[in-house]
Amino acid sequence: MPDFNNKIRPILIFFLTVVFSVIFFEIYFRLTEIILPSFVYDDPELGRTHKAGSLVNLVGAEGFYMGKINSYGYPAKEYKPQKSDNIFRIALIGDSYVEGFQLFERHHFARLLEKEFNKDSTKIIEILNFGTGGADFRGMYLRHIKIAKKFNPDLTLYFIKKEDLINKDAIPMPEPVLKADSIVFMPLKADKFDSKIRQSFAFVREYSTGNLFKEVFETIYTGRLPEVIFDKFYPDKILSSKNNLDSDSELEDKFYSFNEKIIETLSKLNQTGSKIILVEVEELPEKYINLIKAYNLETIPLYKELKKHSKYELNYWKASGKIGHWNHKAHILISKFLLKYLINYRQD
């Protein structure tokens, strides 16, 4: 017994304290929403996608977003897949700019547009946001086909930037392949993941503390830890020299034929009743403009409106002092701009 009291007891108490401390932090993080369990997961069919029903609280880097992924797996306001005849439904497809996790949903251009649209309208207008952070053109197309289409949108808006035409590989997603003149997405496999570790430890993201450690792991894995630790003493050049990707134009050429196929498919879909419009967030390369014209797809030159304003005006976040995604002002501007273009469709 003396041995137990002197040696084993303190060790037991230590381990119990460690366990209780971890539990305390798990509860504390969830209640204060400092870090929540991950709101995304890697779906074999869809790649990185939103997790239905999860809470989201994103603060810091640019703006402040508080919201929830609805039970159908897209952010915020929930609409069922089925819709009645008096509903005019618009689906938004895009990347983090459309996802809008920098401001409250009530300030997102989708909600502002919906509010304005519904004024003196005989039809009910519903706008569903399928934007996903990190998605490129093929990722957008995948979400359109696999998710958005199920909600029977009358109008689908693709928000495209120049960089979306280069496959970014920013998030895990099924590999698209051309088969018998159509695009097929190969489900994610363990060996196709950017890291097997990611899949093996997917469960840690179900916990707030686990999510924190995952972030730490990613910082170490991507080689950013020395920069964090050595602060001023860390030479900037080390990071930039690691980037040995091809130049933008080379990548554009590489993926042109694939993007062409997507545009061709969208054009076919366009003729089946559900209207598709490409919203040019940035001015696209000429060959793409010609291609879009050739396939009779309509475009909205949003970039022309955005260009009238400075980056500081539309992308500056006051609290963090950073230039980033669209700020509140930009969302108001976009909603007003789109309203002018889209009001005719509602009357149709």
Partner: peptide, 25 residues
Amino acid sequence: LTPAVAFGISLIVSIIVLSYLITSD
């Protein structure tokens, strides 16, 4: 606190704080 408890708490707090500092501004 008793040494085992104090050491356990300070260990976890240190790990969590350092992790948070690594991942945030």
